[in-house]
Write a protein that binds this DNA or RNA. Sequence first.
DNA 1: AAAGCGGGGCC
DNA 2: GGCCCAGCTTT
Length: 345
Amino acid sequence: MPALSADVPDLRAALLAWFDRRGRDLPWRCGPEGQRDPYRAWVAEVLLQQTQVARGLGYYQRFLAAFPTVQALADAPLDDVLKAWEGCGYYARARNLHRAAQVVAQQGFPEEYGGWLALPGVGPYTAAALSSFTLNEARAVNDGNVRRVLARLHAEPQPTPRWVQAQADALLDPARPGAWNEAVMDLGATVCTPKRPQCGDCPLSPWCAARAGGQPAAYPAPKARPAVQEVHAVAVLIGTPHRAVLEQRQGTLLGGLWGLPAQTFDPARPGAQAQALRDLCARLQAAPGDPLGEVAHAMTHRRVIWQVYAATGGPPPTDVRGAALSRLDHKALSLAQGRADSLFT
DNA sequence: AAAGCGGGGCC
DNA sequence: GGCCCAGCTTT
């Protein structure tokens, strides 16, 4: 295996040649290399934070259709922005993007890395990506793909963020920084994949220490993840699946989204569920009705189990279709849909 | 440094 | 069921 440090020009040339042939053709890569359209690139980068490209594609088209320009985004109500983001998760991204669009509409797009980094929702990865893609600035990105590719290249089982950034900085091709960043990520997403890397198709395999060791998939070592916490709650549906009493969620969990009124309880305590239902209905000035069923919804860090009940009274119902709802609330509403259907079968 | 934050796809 | 994904913000 060639000594990597002495071979950086060859390694760069090999990856960029692969990228020029096999790089992905993605809708936000519009405009010349190093001078991408900043609005489209920005929306895509935020949308793709912790979201796979294959799934981001549909959300990207929907969001761009709703808000074709940064001015349109800045002028829109937050509720409309969240509706366009509905289902995509990590809704703080949409709130921050909306806030940052108002800054950009006033001041124009950033003209350097530091300007991007100063915007809400733009961290080190996104600022490096956008300054290299739109300004041709020599900033190396550090994302999950880069981390995996570099961990394997150097056979480093425990790559710290600091280590990854240093390696990425050293390899970045200063002649084509935007293309280099796109190339490493494309390689990680299509060839140097987490489970079964296709080393036979990899332009970096001559330099790859993990491949030389025979166990490329062992790098990097899996991250330890905290146990998933279960959250039990009762929720009430007042109205119909299309027109129901909704409340806007506060705080960081699904903040800004709308959903059925709900009340958590401790399932280990006898009677706690019935008490939660009474408390919830008392708060709403509603009367509890029939149980509609149970819905469970898994998120990365918790598992939510709802006992859903019909109820009557309470505040006036609102239109469901225009509101941004989480998947959990859509599942709860579909319980009532199934019940309404069954009345006619 | 660690925790919190969605949702889906794939093994 | 576990792991991962073009991470960021807050504590």
